[in-house]
C-alpha cells in the first residue's frame, strides 16, 4: 500500500509530521489489538520516515498496491474504513444509497 495513504500524510510532509502521523496511527491500531494493521503501518513508516527513504521510494518502489483495480480499492478501504467509522451524515447517505432498488 502507498505509505502516504496508510499514514494519511501529504507527499511534502516532513520527518516530524510523518513521525506524528505514525504515532497517531499506532495509537489507533495498537499491535496487541490489530497486529496486521500495525504491521502495515510500521512498514509504511519505514518507507518514508526520512528524506532518503522517501526519494528511494519515489524512484524505485515497484510494489503493486493490489491484484486488480477493485482489489486496490478494497485494500485501501480495509485499511482506512475500520479505523474510522463513517461520519453520521455520510452514513445516512450511504444507507439511503444502498437501500435504493
Amino acid at each position: 500500500m502507498n505509505p502516504y495513504f496508510v499514514l494519511g500524510v501529504p507527499r511534502d510532509a516532513d520527518d516530524a509530521r510523518i513521525r506524528r502521523a505514525y504515532l497517531e496511527a499506532v495509537k489507533r491500531s495498537p499491535p496487541e489489538i490489530q497486529p496486521a494493521r500495525f504491521k502495515v503501518i510500521a512498514a509504511a513508516y519505514e518507507e518514508i520516515k526520512d528524506e532518503s527513504s522517501r526519494c528511494h521510494h519515489e524512484l524505485f518502489d515497484t510494489e503493486c498496491p493490489g491484484d486488480s483495480p477493485f482489489d486496490v480499492v478494497v485494500r485501501h478501504a480495509r485499511l482506512t474504513v475500520p479505523s474510522a467509522p463513517l461520519d453520521f451524515e455520510v452514513m445516512k447517505a450511504y444507507l439511503r444509497a444502498c437501500a435504493k432498488p
Binding site: 502507498n2 518502489d61 486496490v72 480499492v73
Partner: peptide, 18 residues
C-alpha cells in the same frame, strides 16, 4: 496526487513488475 486517480494510477504503473 493522493486521491483515487492517484491510487489507481499507482496500481497500473506498478502492476507490470509482477
Amino acid at each position: 496526487g493522493l486521491d483515487w486517480p492517484g491510487l489507481l494510477g499507482e496500481f497500473y504503473f506498478k502492476a507490470p513488475f509482477g
